Amino acid sequence: MGNSPSGFEYQVFKDGSVQILHHGKQAAILRGRRADDFLDDVSLDDGQLIMARLTGNYRRGNERAARSHPRNLKP
């Protein structure tokens, strides 16, 4: 395992919304309570995994098993 997500960054705007970027491209915008909760969580941790989970852009651990599934094998 050991593949921790990377390439995420975020920007906080004056209105309190948070824009999450992945490799420079917008991945999500958080507003209101979600933005506040995100900022609280990020202040305690690096935030890469948090941002990956919020955007849905993270490995789930089953990629290797899926590669050998019969429907994914080329005839």
Rank of each mutant, 00 (worst) to 15 (best):
D45F: 07
S43T: 05
K74E: 14
D46W: 03
A52L: 09
Y10D: 01
H23R: 12
D15F: 04
K14V: 03
R34M: 02
R60A: 05
D46H: 04
F38I: 02
R67D: 14
A35V: 10
F13P: 04
N72E: 13
Y10C: 07
I29V: 15
H22K: 15
L30T: 10
R59G: 13
S17L: 01
L49G: 08
A27N: 07
P70G: 11
D37T: 01
N62Q: 12
Q11E: 12
R53K: 15
F13Y: 13
K14M: 08
R53V: 03
A27K: 10
Q48E: 08
N3L: 06
L21G: 01
H23T: 09
N62H: 15
R53P: 01
N62S: 07
F13N: 10
Q26F: 07
L21R: 09
I29W: 11
E9M: 04
Q19S: 09
Y58T: 02
Q26D: 10
T55F: 06
G16E: 02
Y58C: 03
T55I: 06
R31Q: 13
R67Q: 14
Q19F: 08
G61C: 09
M51L: 01
H69Y: 12
N57K: 15
G47S: 10
N3M: 05
V42A: 08
Y58E: 07
D36K: 15
G2S: 07
S68K: 15
S68L: 13
N3K: 02
R31Y: 04
Q48K: 06
D45Q: 13
G32N: 09
R64W: 11
V18S: 06
Y10E: 02
T55H: 00
E63V: 02
F8D: 05
D45G: 04
V18K: 03
I20V: 12
L73G: 03
L21K: 00
D37Y: 12
G7V: 02
A27M: 08
Y10P: 01
A27V: 11
G61S: 11
L73N: 01
L73K: 15
G2W: 06
D46L: 09
H69Q: 05
